[in-house]
Write a protein that binds this DNA or RNA. Structure first.
Lengths: 341, 341
DNA sequence: GTTAGCACTCGACCTTTGAGAGTGCTAACA
DNA sequence: TGTTAGCACTCTCAAAGGTCGAGTGCTAAC
């Protein structure tokens, strides 16, 4: 048995209906739809075929059909059409973003808020990945007698900062001098190159061994892996609107995942494509077995990029979600690259 | 009718039992308890009195009694005894905090995590309130041609930073010079004094009017009110463990409050006391009508302090919560004041 | 290939019923 | 006079049974 145009059409109608209602779809419902010129009996035959092909499932004998993960896969890959956002939607997004700021944490917080607000799903946004980045400037600002704020500026104009310990007796002017040396030596370096350069610097300077070790530690931790990129979640409570989460225990374990960076981070990874859709079982996490995750990449400058994701029920409105993220990707890039409106 | 020792004792027993089980407490249950030498019938008479006095309520005729908000109030004010934390509990807290860092965001995040983890309730921790603070140092670090990171260090050794716009043509050295002037002029100032000083500085410098306006803007927003102090929540999913939140809609509106800074911030305010307990209706928020909030203050240096809060069901284990927060208050102070272990 | 008709299935919802927990009241007891 | 045993009463909860309606698969006719 093969798929034909009519089967595609019926499947699409079922998915569309189920996305809206979350109720198993019966043959009569489809037959009544505009543009479907067949009786319920005919639809039933086709539905029976679609079930055999693995696209539909029946919760129990006398219920309607619900789309399987395979059906959503087909829908996302072949049936889905991009939609245009309404002026009201883009307006809502811009309202969240209209603060003029290039502060990474703030931008991604606003982005997560906007995404969850517009889609009514849960949004996760990570800060820009610093792995392939180049260093532009390193500067220490004195804080107390024994500590300073180490500020690292990247080529793309992103900033990371961190308090480090400073040996007693190293004064503000000395810190400024050291900062100049560090900036000269490290400018243009990748984090890996910086590590080598720093050992040279340490050798040259002789003293300040411990301080340089702290600097290296920060570069490693802040520009190294992605354990330290900020990660914010928005709209945690949104999913509890959906009947999929009318069971508190399910809701709780879902929320628990959102609270665990270790479990959450992998959801945003796994693909460098512009968009990635993972559906239910494809995610491979029991807590998310009837969730889908749509992730997208945003770019800042040449080499820097971050990820955002939307988590919703498998029956989520993929077309709209992809459109919203598409729009948001450009918006974040503009904000973080300092583009003026 | 008046309260007597026996009534207190019975009320305490009922509260203790209800805190553990969340099930209405019957006369037999109390009568069976160690140290209570009375039959269920006697207890029943006393319970009937306690109900008349407003300390107990009956969900329905043939159920046991549950404590009223008034009973918890009495419990917190008069009956509660501080408990000692077990080594296991202090250990768990230290495990969350053992990263050596004086980074405010990180410390309060860890604190919220630790509090929620140890108490199994939901925790909210705010960063130190900057209102009464004095400025110690102001420094700008160049980021791009047209932006810089403005770093403000306070007397207590706390740091706030923010990206500001810089007019084209102002180079790194000039920014450093300006930073020196700013630090000289503003050192020791309160935010209010800084505002006046800055207008002087602007007058003296002539140019850089716009830059100074940006600096002032940051001082106002970062050290001014408390709209900009960081606020982190830990253990959002914890409350869903309790039968009070077995209703999804209730859980959802609870979570929605946690997502709204405007609704959440007032919960941490309202009292300068070391500890404040607000019970159910005292909170005056429908979403929290059967929650209690315990808040406590922590101090950094002389003039700087922040707030933490625990949100749990009204039948929460107040004694333990207060003890945990007491311990945590000292731990946060130590971390943020840079005290070494 | 399409459709009408029909018997069949199964969950949703309602009602009934019985068990259990807990109460208030009364009368007896120390 | 305070305490307690006994008992009738109330109310929730869970299980059991019954009805309704939506939806199916199959067959036969168009």
């Amino acid at each position: 048995m093969k798929m034909d145009d009519r089967k595609f059409m019926i499947l699409q109608a079922i998915i569309d209906d189920y996305i809206m209602t979350a109720v198993p779809v019966g043959s009569r419902t489809i037959s009544r739809k505009q543009g479907v010129g067949f009786s319920p009996a005919t639809i039933r035959n086709e539905m029976s075929d679609l079930e055999e092909l693995g696209y539909l499932a029946q919760p129990h004998t006398s219920a309607g059909r619900i789309p399987s993960a395979k059906a959503y896969r087909l829908y996302v890959d072949r049936l889905m059409k991009m939609v245009d956002l309404s002026a009201e939607e883009t307006g809502r997004i811009q309202d969240h973003l209209n603060k003029r700021t290039a502060q990474v944490e703030e931008v991604i917080r606003q982005a997560a808020q906007a995404l969850s607000d517009v889609t009514h799903y849960t949004a996760v946004v990570s800060g820009p990945q610093m792995a392939g980045v180049s260093i532009k400037r390193v500067q220490m600002v004195p804080v107390t007698e024994t500590s300073a704020l180490l500020v690292i500026v990247t080529g793309a104009g992103l900033v990371r900062e961190r308090v480090i310990q400073v040996p007693e007796g190293v004064g503000p002017d000395q810190l400024y001098g050291l900062s100049k040396v560090l900036t000269e030596r490290l400018a243009g370096c990748s984090p890996q190159e910086a590590r080598e350069q720093l050992t040279n610097v340490t050798a040259d300077l002789g003293e300040h061994r411990q301080l340089m070790a702290s600097v290296l530690g920060v570069i490693d931790s802040q520009l190294g892996g992605d354990e330290n990129v900020p990660l914010v979640v928005g709209g945690r409570s949104n999913l509890l609107h959906y009947p999929e989460y009318s069971d508190v225990e399910k809701a709780r374990s879902f929320l628990a995942v959102l609270e665990s960076r270790e479990k959450l981070a992998p959801l945003l990874k796994g693909s460098d494509l512009e968009f990635t859709v993972r559906i239910g079982p494809e995610i491979n996490m029991p807590e998310f077995s009837d969730c889908s995750v749509v992730t997208a990449t945003y770019h800042v400058g040449e080499n820097t990029s971050g990820t955002m994701g939307i988590i919703g029920p498998t029956r989520m409105d993929y077309a709209r979600v992809v459109s919203v993220m598409n729009y948001m990707g450009r918006a974040i890039s503009d904000l973080l690259s300092g583009v003026k409106e």
